[in-house]
Design a protein around this nucleic acid. Structure first.
Length: 592
RNA sequence: GGAUCCGUAGCGAAAUUGGUUAUCGCGCCUCCCUGUCACGGAGGAGACUGCCGGUUCGAGUCCGGUCGGGUCCGCCA
């Protein structure tokens, strides 16, 4: 060992001991006749001091600069009276250095590592990630993530789950996100794909009799990143159980999420049902009341229908929407009457971003009701609306008049932004909930009249084959659920369709022939013909959950070596060009 | 694919309505200093204001383009 102790552990009980420390020069204070150095390692900082006793040691101490790596041997001594530093763990002692070895020099770092320094441009920090990682904040995050993953593993192991690794080189899946493709050298013209999720493999494990599987699984998707979506690769706590129904999955997941919240955040869990269970919101209700399939339930601010109330009004926008089988929904925002013209314009743009045509409003200030639509609604109806949504002085009411889904989503986006503006997103709270009863199908947004899977084609339709045969596809619900935390989608899961007959029928409704299903999901459907047990599971996005629990502004902080917002690794300079030789070996011609 | 914000020494920021030699703090280099811990003191180096073009007597500042970065929409079964 190059050291007898770490830089974070020495205290008064070690006084007079001869010790050896190794670490980085964190900071130096040269007083002419005495040099203090804060020596840093992962575990902390210890003050070491040099006096001009030994000429060689003194001269070398004089050369030391920030981030040089050194090893020192010396004696632990009590600091003189009134010079202890209560801010340091090791602040009562210091080391009188007798020997100094310079293990490595360092160039001047491109940014400073001291605390209380304003944060440097992220791109520079990412390029020099190996330096940035030395900061205590990031050291803590690495450790936190390790404990976090260990907690999940322990929890599931105790409940009889087996962690199993599934292939990284897999098949391209025709639905879903863009794949990362890997050309095959041994099979010219053919490609592997990195898995978007181990979905099919975990279902095959259930057919294989594994019963309870989990994996902290890497997932690869070539889609544009977001603040809460790391580019390219991310990790899910992928789990699946045989002979389980939806409530069995919830019963396993809920205590784990509670444990993670309590151990890895200082948030107080709110919004639990009286029996301690997570609230369950049907998908349709979530959209109708909160305008989102991932509602932030830390605050109320519910959408209310005024469709009935305004059904006979002469305001063309409301009237038109209702005549087209649409709805008129209202969102009362308490304390929103102070929004400026510019802020309302911004909210209007947000609503339009969700395909609303505009954003009508009624603003109620002390003695005055202001609204661009009051002249169309009339005094009486305006008052009725205000009463209906229980608005008071100081509030503003926004309206969406459109087909149901657009009305919901546009007001949902407005609700979200208003909560930001009014500071309603309380970071000391954690609001978990399940969104259940997703529709199995919806109309295609690309091809008019065509029916697509709304969410996950492998889900079991509620009512099974009977529903598929008898119901209007758009009315069929799936045993499909999302877990939501503070407005973020934390997990997605389903009870799977394990029956070949039901599977073919489900795909047939979405326009797939038997041959297409066989070609694309051959292994799965073949497996289902050999006694597949009923099964289901889900897959929490662990990076995103930790990001929310830790109140981080970016999911990149969760990764040791993150990609930037354009999918580049600035440190490794990837993606990078490859040689002609490699391309030739893979039978790929570069486009000129 | 679209929208929007940002870009000034190594880092973080400033520069009035377009005006003279682009300012400050940290860091860096040299020297002084035996109790500091954001040590102190003296001096010094370091910038084609992202890049290209335009308007103007004059551009860090205004305009157009471009490159790089952040965030959002689309996208993410």
């Amino acid at each position: 060992m190059l050291r007898t102790h770490t830089c974070g552990e020495l205290n008064t009980s070690n006084v007079d001991q001869e010790i050896t420390l190794a670490g980085w020069v964190h900071h130096r204070r040269d007083h002419g006749g005495i040099i203090f150095i804060d020596l840093r390692d992962k575990y902390g900082v210890t003050q070491i001091k040099f006096n001009p006793i030994n000429k060689t040691v003194w001269e070398n101490a004089d050369r030391l600069r920030n981030e040089w790596v050194i090893k020192i041997t010396g004696k632990v001594v009590l600091r003189p009276d009134n010079t202890a530093n209560p801010k340091m763990h090791t602040g009562e002692i210091e080391i009188e250095v007798q020997e100094l070895e310079i293990l490595n020099k360092s160039k001047t770092p491109p940014f400073e590592l001291k605390e209380n320094i304003e944060e440097t441009n992220e791109a520079l920090r990412l390029k020099y990630r190996f330096i940035d990682l030395r900061r205590p904040e990031l050291q803590k995050l690495l450790k936190l993530k390790d404990e976090y993953m260990q907690c999940m593993r322990d929890y599931l192991h105790k409940r009889g789950f087996t962690e199993i690794q599934t292939p990284i080189l897999a098949n391209s899946s025709p639905e879903g996100a863009r794949d990362f493709l890997v050309p095959s050298r041994l099979h010219p013209g053919k490609f592997y794909a990195l898995p978007q999720a181990p979905q099919q493999f975990k279902q095959l494990l259930m057919v294989g009799g594994v019963d309870k599987y989990f994996q902290i699984a890497p997932c690869f998707r070539d889609e544009d990143p977001r603040m809460d979506r790391h580019y390219g690769e991310f990790y899910q706590l992928d789990m699946e159980m045989s002979f389980a129904n939806q409530d069995d999955i919830f019963t396993i997941m809920e205590p784990l999420m509670i444990e993670l919240t309590e151990k890895f955040s200082n948030k107080k869990i709110m919004n639990l049902e009286a029996n301690g269970r997570f609230r369950q919101l049907p998908w349709r209700e979530a959209l109708t009341r909160y305008g989102s399939d991932k509602p932030d339930l830390r605050f109320e601010m519910e959408i209310r229908s005024v469709t009935e109330l305004v059904s006979n009004c002469e305001f063309a926008v409301f009237k038109g929407a209702i005549q087209n089988d649409g709805v008129v929904y209202a969102l009362k925002v308490e304390g929103g009457s102070g929004f400026t013209r510019k802020e309302i314009d911004n909210l209007t743009e947000i609503a339009k971003g969700k395909e609303a045509k505009g954003l009508a409003y009624i603003s109620i200030k002390e003695n005055e009701i202001s609204s661009p639509i009051i002249k169309f609604l009339g005094e009486e109806l305006t008052q009725k609306i205000i009463t209906e949504v229980d608005a008071k002085s100081g509030d503003i009411i926004f309206f969406a008049a459109d087909e149901w889904k657009i009305a919901c989503l546009s007001l949902g986006a407005v609700r979200n932004e208003c909560a930001n503006m009014l500071g309603l997103k309380d970071n000391t709270k954690a609001a978990w909930c399940w969104i259940v009863d997703f529709p199995m199908y919806s109309y295609s947004e690309i091809e008019a009249g065509k029916i697509d899977f709304e969410h996950n084609p492998f889900s079991m339709p509620q009512g099974g084959l009977k529903s598929l045969l008898e119901k209007n596809p758009l009315d069929i619900l799936a045993y499909q659920y999302d877990l939501v935390l503070n407005g973020f989608e934390a997990s997605s899961g389903a009870i799977r369709n394990h029956n070949p007959e039901v599977m073919y029928k489900a795909f047939e409704i979405a326009g797939y022939s038997k041959e297409e299903v066989d070609a694309q999901f051959g292994a799965l459907i073949r497996a289902f013909e050999y006694g597949a047990p009923p099964h289901g599971g889900n897959a929490p996005g662990i990076d995103r959950i930790l990001m929310v629990l830790s109140d981080l502004d970016s999911i990149r902080d969760i990764y040791a070596f993150p990609k930037d917002g354009k999918g580049k690794d600035l440190m490794m300079d990837s993606p990078s060009e490859i040689s002609e030789k490699q391309l030739k070996e893979l039978n790929i011609k570069m486009r000129q």
